[in-house]
Amino acid sequence: MALSRPYQPLLLRILHGSVGLFLMAAILTAYWTYDTYDGRWGKIPLPTFPDIEGIHGTFGLWTLLIFPAFIIYAFHRGQKRLIQPNTLRKLTQVGKPIWWYNLNRVTNTLALLALTFAVFSGKMMDENWLPDGELNHAWYYAHLISWVVMVGAIALHLLMNAKVGGAPLLLSMLTWEFREKDSPTLWSGQLSRWWSSVQQGAWRKWFQPMTTMIALEIAILVSLVAAWIIPLLK
């Protein structure tokens, strides 16, 4: 593989691709669900499909299942792609390359927050609300807003990555080629070493020092756990 080509770690491509695939399916079925059961703010003549809400929920569920692993990867091995301590200062250099790179980091981070909002608000809904015509629940409105925000965040994410790296960067997420150090055959050994370090107490240093980004990661992961627990308590 030519070294001049952008290279994305294989695990990033798998997690990013899986989340992206289920997310796009969830977005499309979300609109179809809105079109079938609501349509108060405009609609297009899609076929009425009563089971579409269940299909949308399935795609949303798969997104939620994979998303925590992607968050952990993004905030650790992919942390350089997210907001940095000096990002706000560098955003004052409008129009310069460093400005675009840091704006890209901002949009990457916002996309993660938008998806967190979307999956959490979706889990707070009751699957019977829309079929029963109950369209005025606060969590339903929150979920509608979350998907509008999510579409905007994805658009910005794609635009900023295209601006920073162009088509080669976008296409680098779609290739299955990988370098020797990224071989899946090495993952079991790496996982075993990681688990051994956890058993020896390495987890005590995970949150030291407590930075803003670590706090944000914890907040996202806690909200994803809460998305599972809260509905069980209703």
Rank of each mutant, 00 (worst) to 15 (best):
E127N: 04
V164C: 00
D132N: 05
S146T: 14
W176R: 08
S146V: 14
A153K: 06
N136A: 01
F178A: 08
M125I: 12
T211N: 08
A202K: 04
P131Y: 04
M124N: 02
W187D: 13
F117L: 00
S121I: 04
F207Q: 02
W176S: 14
V164D: 01
L156M: 15
M210T: 06
G152L: 11
A118Q: 05
P209N: 11
V164S: 02
N161R: 04
E180C: 11
L156A: 12
T212G: 10
L115G: 00
A162P: 00
N108C: 12
W203G: 08
M124S: 02
M173N: 12
S188L: 14
K123I: 02
R179Q: 14
Y140E: 10
W139T: 05
A114D: 01
K123W: 06
G189S: 04
A167K: 07
T212S: 13
V148P: 07
R179A: 12
G152Q: 05
A202F: 04
A111W: 02
T107L: 11
S146G: 11
V151F: 11
F117A: 01
S192Q: 03
A162M: 10
V198H: 06
G133C: 02
H143T: 07
E134Q: 09
S121E: 02
A167N: 08
S188P: 01
F207D: 08
Q199L: 09
T175K: 07
